[in-house]
Design a protein around this nucleic acid. Structure first.
Lengths: 335, 335
DNA sequence: TTGTACGCGTTATCAC
DNA sequence: GTGATAACGCGTACAA
């Protein structure tokens, strides 16, 4: 891949590289004629400045590193979509890294991103991550970091999340108002921030409506398809009258299990983060869902990070940004 | 973000930068003691060579550019997953670009990738792309390019796709053997390679079993949710006895439409590329699907591209690699 | 065995 | 108005 440089232009036009540079950068006092010559020639040869040389000189890469647990996931791929939209608008490129939910891999990929001289990092923590001191170290080295979705209170950064508390509260409240009293809460591993926030919303709603919180109705884990089956079996013995699954895959697994068992509950499941409305419609016409603003999370997070990188005022104190969720209540299609 | 360089180490240890460089690169004849000193110090300060400087020097970036129509899409995000797995193993990073199905944006992002000095490009063409001369120009400049999924016969590159013909043939054959005779084929825009290959498989199966090809039963487009509704309405007037949707979203839209109209056909839909089996199970227990090997496509494509970049022998003449698809027949769960 | 000098592509600074 | 030079971080030929 042979590329044309400023040198080539200088040689061809019998002028110095600095003149070429000036002409192209439209910088001060330059002979209009020279400028014309240079720009025309550059145009003709389709000259593009080498961003790598620029990076070296300016000590910045105009690249932001994004670390997610996994790419092949509806939520994260939409967040990335949002990130990309903003980043490209502001002249940044995005390099994606996956932690595969592992603490070790997360550390490694963060190292990689740092080695690549990413100008800043956008991270959603792996479920295996309990310790963020390695991130704190980077922060102290002035590397801009913004956490999103899976955040940590142990790290004093800007963070962008959905309003998980509010969403879970609304979903639970909706079920209660529909007469449900024994609402199962199927959720992710306990230590993840998202889990805690959603659980808190669930509890708050129960409390507000004078229902008891029964911890037997709450199950944690990133249940694989089979696992959910047995969990649901166990739960059914406790005669619940509604299921609130706090995540896409949990909800799908749950629906699948219930369907196999021919459990017919008109409005069993409410879930957070199911982004494909068409599928939700098909799966359970009467299902209520909490739509997670994945695109917006990505956009806002990217915007905040770039502001940080460029030293602009951030939106001040409120270091923890929450984007509202939307409760979507589907009318039962069958009589 | 202050980083430590080879210079810092040299200064601290009172030796020259070249000595430091040699010590770290484990290069020839160096005093073991000096080497120890340097490596220890570097380790302690967590020194990482600046890949940007290296890129500039070696005129390569160890980055591969991936251009897909959209990230937030099950198929593409899984392909990216596969690409990433291979790339990182072989020391490459992956920068993602989206064309948003637009020819102009595709050209722009390719320019960006080239400007960023990507060592090679992995491209799945936008549906808006009818002309690939701009890619041919890059090819002539010796930029390694591998196409995947949405390929073009107008470009003489290595390509990696699913066996779309075989998959469509198998699906159609399955429907025919189940007694279907008027099989609708709902597919993507006509000029896309994938569309053509799948259509050819569909036709070949019809022909082999002596059924007439009725072009009224074939519909093209990237139907939005609403659009599918009216298409299905039109099609129903032609009294089809099966639907073969050549794509995830088409299939979901089709199922949704059929469900709303209470059309009960035991095995209506067969589709290509639906990767989430759990959802397929839920949607239509008797549905037959063709699983697309998205992960493998990504892996193989990345492998081929990196071989190209590194000048290794490619797998010779067969410049067009096809990965087999798998027909998954689900037994009806009812009765 | 180690140090010096140069080049990768670009721009800022200083001379002319 | 334009040219020469240094610097960004690194590796390496060449010199010592």
């Amino acid at each position: 891949m042979d590329t044309i440089t400023i040198k080539d232009i200088a040689r061809a036009l019998n002028i110095s590289t600095s003149t070429v540079s000036r002409a192209l950068r439209d910088s001060y006092e330059i002979n209009p004629e020279t400028k014309r010559l240079v720009t025309e020639y550059a145009e003709r040869l389709n000259y593009r400045p080498n961003p790598i040389a620029l990076s070296l000189k300016e000590n910045r890469s105009r690249v932001i590193g994004v670390i997610v647990p996994q790419i092949a996931n509806n939520f994260f791929s939409q967040v990335i979509n949002g990130i990309e939209a903003i980043a490209y608008n502001r002249g940044y490129h995005v390099i994606i890294f996956q932690s595969h939910e592992s603490y070790e891999r997360e550390m490694l990929t963060v190292q990689q991103a740092v080695a690549r001289r990413a100008d800043g990092l956008l991270i959603s923590l792996a479920s295996g991550t309990h310790d963020v001191t390695y991130l704190r170290a980077l922060q102290e080295k002035k590397l801009p970091i913004v956490l999103f979705d899976r955040i940590s209170k142990d790290l004093d950064t800007l963070s962008v999340t959905a309003d998980n508390f509010g969403g879970a509260f609304a979903a639970t409240e909706h079920l209660i108002k529909a007469g449900r009293q024994r609402i199962v809460h199927l959720t992710m591993p306990a230590h993840i921030s998202v889990t805690q926030e959603r659980l808190a919303g669930y509890r708050a709603a129960l409390e507000q409506y004078g229902l008891v919180y029964d911890e037997n109705l709450v199950r944690y884990g990133q249940f694989g398809p089979d696992e959910v089956e047995s969990i649901v079996d166990e739960l059914l013995k406790l005669s619940p009258d509604a299921f609130f699954a706090a995540g896409d895959r949990l909800a799908i697994g749950c629906l699948s299990a219930l369907k196999k068992r021919n459990v017919a509950i008109p409005e069993t499941v409410s879930l957070i983060g199911f982004t494909n409305i068409t599928v939700a419609d098909l799966l359970a016409p009467a299902m209520t869902t909490v739509e997670q603003p994945s695109l917006e999370i990505g956009q806002l997070a990217a915007e905040q990070l770039i502001n940080l990188i460029e030293g602009k005022k951030t939106t001040a104190p409120p270091t923890s940004l929450k984007i509202p969720t939307q409760l979507i209540v589907r009318a039962s299609s069958q009589s």
